[in-house]
Computed example of a mutant assay.
Amino acid sequence: MTIPKVLGRTSSINVRKVLWTLDELHVAYEREDWGHGFSSTSDPKFLKLNPNALVPVLIDQHGPIWESNAICRYVGAGTPLFPEDRRQRALVDQWMDWQATELNTAWRYAFAGLVRKTPGFTDPEQIQASITAWNTVMGLLSARLVDTGCYVAGDQFTLADIVLGLSVHRWLFSPIERETWPAVSAYYERLKLRPAFQRWSLPEVP
């Protein structure tokens, strides 16, 4: 079997999702730096792999796969990270999709303005609105963790915890005022015990 290759810079949270998943499963892989500060994703060679010009891309013997959550599902299929049970798998999917839509939408403006310093994301009112929305959705995650008492989909660690764990890390280390959610703090402490999380919970950079 061909060793999979991951294209993408480790400063990307979406790349780190994939790398954490691979490390959690002890899958050997190669990685090439692409994206901001490295090889351009506008290169025709890259666009043939992902026409969206975004990282990450995973390439194995079957060809390329893009979209970070899709890659995580692909890698995690047939393992406890992505349960075979229909109900449990739906819960994992539910929270992975929520991360990609509701949670990402909430933090996008504030993170772009305060951390990435992206031009055009400097409106104080919109930054504050984004921070408020970010704290609100983290409150929804907190309520879920209170219900389960452990991980997002239940008692077992799954792909949902990989994509949300890095999101929690981003929330905790961004320069914003945060609500106090004890269940989220306890969850983060549980994740910190995992060696693969320790490796990929890097300081947030643009």
Rank of each mutant, 00 (worst) to 15 (best):
T2P: 11
T2F: 08
P4G: 07
G8Y: 02
R9F: 08
S11D: 14
N14A: 12
W20S: 02
T21S: 04
D23C: 03
L25I: 07
V27K: 14
Y29C: 03
E30F: 09
T41E: 00
S42D: 14
D43E: 14
F46I: 05
L58D: 03
I59R: 05
D60R: 06
N69W: 01
Y74T: 06
T79P: 00
P83D: 07
E84P: 00
E84V: 13
R86I: 14
R86W: 11
A90S: 15
V92N: 05
M96W: 06
D97I: 14
W98V: 13
W98H: 11
W98D: 08
A100P: 02
N104F: 12
T105P: 01
F111D: 03
A112Y: 13
R116T: 11
K117M: 03
K117N: 12
T118M: 10
Q126F: 05
I127F: 06
Q128Y: 04
A129P: 01
T132W: 03
A133I: 08
N135D: 14
G139L: 09
A143P: 01
A143R: 15
R144T: 11
C150R: 15
Y151F: 14
D155C: 04
D155S: 14
Q156K: 13
I162H: 01
V163E: 03
L164V: 05
L166P: 01
H169C: 09
L172C: 05
L172S: 10
S174Y: 07
E177L: 11
P182C: 07
V184P: 04
A186Y: 03
P195A: 08
L202S: 07
E204D: 12
